[in-house]
């Protein structure tokens, strides 16, 4: 999923300072799972903003809505009845959701309330870690199911580098060295010999170097 974290409240307050009628929009997908921008967080942020304005003796009108999927124009359409009645939209979805709203409603400014972080997985309760960088040419099949692009700090294809220390990455003792993990996994699978195959220089085009990506499925389009 896509992970996100709420922005510092002061930043959000600055964005909306000129406005008094706000549409605060959450999303029911990834940001709900990582507890950054679901229905619950929408409610909490609305209260925090109300409180702040109250303290400053200002009025603010916040309408809360949480869409099924903010990166989907079909659901974003549900905002249409409210949009003319507000000065600005604050989105608690990932950057994809924010942009879907901006693309649909040309005249109303939209501000992000979260920082979109990475594509990750849940590791334990309340902990998410980066797992994929969307390189567009997945190599997990030859690296034992562990991603060298997202999980090696230097995205080495022929690691590990000389900086590994006690099995951890040179960048931080809190980060597992991806290549240590890859090696351990290849051993478990009895695929040690695969390690010595040279991995060729990567073609970065499918992962973004070729310009913004678009997928067109003729059968569906």
């Amino acid at each position: 999923m896509i992970t996100a974290e709420q922005k510092p409240i002061q930043e959000i307050i600055q964005y909306i300072a000129p406005y008094s009628k706000i549409l605060l929009v959450g999303c029911n997908e990834c940001v709900t799972v990582c507890a950054a921008g679901g229905r619950k967080e929408v409610g909490l942020l609305a209260s925090a903003l109300h409180l702040n304005h109250l303290k400053q003796g200002k009025n603010i009108d916040i309408r809360e809505i949480t869409l099924e999927r903010q990166c989907d124009p079909e659901y974003v359409e549900e905002l249409a009845p409210y949009i003319d009645g507000v000065d600005a939209v604050v989105s608690m979805a990932c950057g994809c959701g924010v942009q879907t709203i901006a693309a649909r409603f040309k005249k109303t400014p939209v501000f992000p309330a979260v920082n979109t972080r990475f594509m990750g997985a849940s590791v334990s309760q309340g902990v998410w870690s980066e797992r994929c960088k969307g390189c567009g040419d997945c190599v997990l099949g030859i690296t034992g199911g562990i991603c060298p692009v997202a999980r090696c700090s230097k995205h080495l294809f022929n690691g590990p580098c000389g900086g590994t220390s006690n099995g951890q990455c040179e960048v931080s003792p809190d980060i597992d060295c991806a290549w240590r993990l890859i090696w351990e996994r290849l051993k478990e699978l009895g695929m040690e010999s695969r390690y010595e195959e040279l991995m060729e220089a990567k073609d970065w085009r499918p992962g973004g170097a070729g310009g913004p990506g678009t997928i067109i499925r003729e059968d569906l389009a």
Binding site: S153, K154, H155, L156, F157, N158, G159, C161, G162, G163, E170, V171, L198, M199, E200, A201, K202, W204
Partner: peptide
């Protein structure tokens, strides 16, 4: 060489390139 991560230097905010790694550089 791959090089030390930018974190160790005086521009820890820099984006590391790592387009190819040291093994691929040798081959190149």
């Amino acid at each position: 060489l791959s090089g030390d991560h930018a974190k160790f230097g005086d521009h820890p905010m820099a984006q590391g390139v790592f387009d190819i790694d040291s093994v691929q550089m040798i081959k190149m």
